[in-house]
Design a protein around this nucleic acid. Structure first.
Lengths: 350, 350
DNA sequence: TTGTATGCGTTATCAC
DNA sequence: GTGATAACGCATACAA
């Protein structure tokens, strides 16, 4: 490891003071333009590299944002992170990412680690099993801004970036009803999380408005993974054929797809026997046959907005500070899995 | 932002010197056990947090590893990163991740950024369009260790962690031949990358050993995305039915699945008309019907090994320094998409 | 086993 | 416009 060039080296070579070099490198308007250029050129020439550690030590900032997600294994989540990366890196911020694997304990220890690493701000989507946010207290106490995305905590005094889950579920369910479905099963996630609770509300509301009685037995709660989709299919198959639902609205695409595939293998026709709507517009929704009707959940956008919101908070923007929720637009993508009636797909997309 | 507790604060309160505190916090064996305990207790009590910036500035290390991947949108890649995270965090290292989006220019600028952030080591999987590794020169010059994974550069003086792509492709192709296929199409990625070149070699070798002439027209090169899979399907459909291949071996699962699905929609039977083998054991391989036969590419393991290898290099381990390649075991997972002959799947898995 | 003194590279404050 | 200097928090060489 040869020696690194520092501002002192530049200062010596250019016959200037370290202070001037420091200012020049940051293109301070207080310095002569020509001097700045000389400094920049010489820095380039000598292979100078800015030392973030010295700078951060001095500035008491880390220029690092922490992200805690339940799992990094879905197209949705990687899109969110990609969106965050875009905005953060543009502003010179680094990201550190960790997974809670849906476990409260892991979420807690990850939050702690990040706190100790002195992240400037936290972006978090809560685990299934998280029932309170005491583990975020250190952040609140030190006034380190926290932004929730996707899964937030009701009544928390932070900003949350999400979609209108209730309305999305309402749209999805209404669409199924309009296709003639009367017995719509709803496969959802842990109702601890407000997003699933809101989806359930939207589902109920659609039923109510169309005078379809709500049947608790048609709501299944699970972790929405591959196996859960298969299990739901098995539940349906175990029913008396006359009692089976004529549609299933799943709170994610993965479970919907696996449920569909399993039913198809057992001779059920999709959408004729049972129509399907998923949630997320995951890549898999375009892989099954028929393609899965789903809610387009714009992950990249969510990530962008969450970070830019966090940066506003870091800069003390009062408008953002007084915001509770930021709602990103989502839409229903109608595809084959829910089209009982023949109709023009294009029209439905509008 | 209230004041942070430093070792000076602890020193004052405990009537010790900052040096002793510093040593005590790191449990230096040179310090009295009781003193260490007193220090640790008081640190806990006062809410002391270690300052990495001061420490790194002093130590001239960042305890950060850089990762550059083409894209973070596949199950394979997220598994790799998860594996890296596991090993790195255990050793107190942070990761910073960036995507090249398969573009040489972006890879270059990302490498530059990481160089300037002074990462202690680099983990990289090359972009399609990367034809040389001049942009990694600064790392080599400064003796910052670089480990390639998945896609490496032939003849480079660094370690690369990968599977035996040639052998995997050989196994896949041989399996298809054993199923009675005689006209096997191969859909592959950019042959700039050695992994695709090696897969092609394995494919050719299998043909050769079974006296099947190699037909250049049956090899298609693309970026292996959804659309490329569909395009290949269209190419096949446009052929005279008598000339169509009886099998397709794809260099990833995504393209294989989309190709399959499109063909099925046009009335082609899988595997009866055309058998399929993919590559990666992506989650989607278990979503299509019939399930896709594929090569299990153990991403998590690759990530683990790559990081632990990098850490060995950082610690000056000579054995690793003199290693060129680390080959991780992969295996063929036989599933429905390639089973023309009825047989016991269990047996084939062995 | 503990203490003293110094430097790591940058930036902010104040002075010129 | 530019310079001198102190401070950020930690870790080590050297001293005791």
């Amino acid at each position: 490891m040869q020696k690194e060039i520092t501002i002192y080296d530049l200062a010596r070579v250019l016959n200037l003071s370290p202070a001037t070099i420091s200012r020049g490198l940051r293109k301070s308007s207080v310095i002569n333009q020509k001097t700045i250029q000389r400094i920049l050129d010489k820095a380039e020439e000598m292979g100078y590299r800015h030392n973030n550690f010295a700078s951060n030590l001095r500035n008491k900032r880390t220029k690092t944002l922490g992200i805690i997600v339940p799992r990094l294994n879905s197209y949705f989540m990687t899109s969110v992170v990609a969106g965050m990366e875009d905005v953060a890196s543009k502003e010179g911020y680094n990201l550190i990412i960790s997974q809670s694997l849906e476990k409260k304990e892991l979420e807690k220890s990850n939050a702690n680690t990040m706190f100790n690493k002195r992240i400037d701000g936290l972006l978090i989507s809560l685990a299934y099993t998280t029932t309170d946010i005491a583990h975020l207290q250190p952040f609140f106490e030190k006034q380190i801004p926290v932004v929730f995305f996707d899964r937030s905590f009701p009544g928390v005094e932070s900003v949350s970036v999400t979609i209108d889950n209730r309305q999305a579920a309402y749209k999805a369910t209404t669409h199924l009803i309009e296709q003639g479905c009367k017995k719509i099963m709803h496969l959802t996630g842990n109702l601890n999380r407000d997003i699933y609770e809101n989806r359930l509300k939207g589902y109920k509301q659609a039923l109510l408005e169309h005078a379809i009685p709500f049947n608790e037995g048609l709501v299944q709660t699970s972790t929405l993974n591959e196996q859960d989709g298969v299990n739901t299919a098995k539940t349906i198959l175990a029913m008396n054929p006359a009692d089976r639902p004529d549609a299933v609205f799943c709170a994610n695409d993965i479970s919907a797809v696996h449920c569909m595939v399993h039913l198809k293998q057992q001779g059920i026709s999709i959408p004729e026997d049972i129509a399907f709507v998923g949630f997320n517009n995951d890549a898999v929704s375009r892989m099954v046959e028929p393609n899965l009707t789903t809610i387009d959940y714009p992950g990249h956008k969510i990530g962008e907005v969450a970070v830019s919101c966090l940066l506003h908070l870091l800069n003390g923007d009062e408008r953002v500070k007084n915001t509770d929720q930021i709602i990103i637009h989502s839409s229903l993508l109608v595809r084959g899995s829910s089209l009982k009636k023949r109709c023009n797909e294009r029209l439905l997309l509008l």
